Amino acid sequence: MSTPVDPNSEKRHQTEPVIDESPPIIALSARRLARRRRGEALRRFARDYARNRAGIFGLASLLTIGLLALTAPLFIDQAHLTITGAPGESYQPPSWQYPLGTDNFGRSVLDLVIWGARVSLTVGLLATFVSVTLGTLVGVTAGHFGSSGGLGGRIVSTVLMRITDWFLVLPTLVLAVALAAVLPRGTGTIIIAIGLTVWPPTARLVRAQTLAVEARPYVERARALGGGHAHVMGWHVLPNVMPVVLAQTTLLVATSIIAESTLAFLGMGDPTTISWGGILEAARTAGAISAGIWWYMIPPGLAIAVVALSFTLCGRAVESVINPRLRGQS
């Protein structure tokens, strides 16, 4: 016997909704995917950096010194840092009360060194920011227009690099002293003087990296699709040169701190501001060198050396992580 066929079954199958039991596909937006990739890159960078023992030592030293500098107002009385408010006697040797002794005014040398870290680190970081910003701007502009700007772009690139070469051959210290002598004395003058004299190496390094990035296919594709100079430099070139800029920044901070100490030692800084170079200049003026007051001279000099070495170790570690050829070297 044949089974009767319901004439409405075909219509019912056509009107009933079809339920898809396959697993849903999660479509990631481009912005979310970019955030995920940046997060993975940062985690990979931190993991590779943690393998560099020298870099970890430098980072730990910088964090310790930075923490002391930030919290200095909590345990140091600013009145004791003045000439008239010093609680101790002049030139007291190191003791339990004064671990690093006192200066010619009776101030604690340990308090002076800790407080001086605030100015020295601030000047070093701000001067490095000025230098890196100027060097990156000049390097990216010269590299981009030199490779894809036509005749006018090549002229702009040549002029920028000749200016860079002119600053590069000038003695950095002499130029910084000249600028500090012409401008009004103060911490801002020291920052400007250092920032305007140590940027040429950054400019040449960024220009070389920019030329390498400009030759990549995706930059040529963006240019062929109508991307202008600002679009190519801002969205394609600059993000790819930032790792090199980061490594150069960590190396330049040490140079800036040493330059600040040198200018302050030469008397170009603000005499009312306590910095490591200012402490050394005050010790030289007071005759501590000839009198053998070693506790007045050695601590600020060691502080400068430790901070410069720590920034250099961090910079080398960052460079070894970024550069595949140096990876694995510690």
Rank of each mutant, 00 (worst) to 15 (best):
T102D: 00
R221E: 14
P201A: 13
Q329S: 04
P93G: 04
H144K: 09
V123D: 04
I192Y: 10
L238Y: 08
F265E: 05
H236G: 08
R223G: 11
G301E: 04
A79E: 10
T172N: 05
P93H: 08
A222Y: 06
A180D: 00
M268V: 06
L211V: 15
S95A: 07
R53D: 03
A254D: 02
L183S: 09
T71G: 07
V138C: 15
L205F: 14
L170C: 03
R53V: 15
G152M: 13
V219T: 01
E40I: 02
S320Y: 01
T136S: 15
G88S: 01
T133Q: 10
R327W: 04
T262M: 10
L251S: 08
I258Q: 07
L170H: 04
V119I: 05
L168Y: 14
L74G: 12
V307P: 03
G143K: 00
A291Y: 01
R38A: 12
V245N: 13
M1Q: 07
S95F: 02
V174P: 03
I25F: 05
W115I: 03
I83S: 14
A259G: 12
A60Q: 03
N52A: 11
R221K: 11
S2C: 12
L238E: 07
R118W: 04
L59E: 06
A117V: 03
R44S: 11
E281G: 13
T122W: 01
A224R: 07
N240H: 15
G106M: 06
P201I: 06
S2E: 13
R12T: 10
F145V: 01
A264R: 12
R185H: 07
A60T: 11
T187P: 01
A308W: 08
W295N: 00
G228A: 03
Q92C: 06
E21P: 00
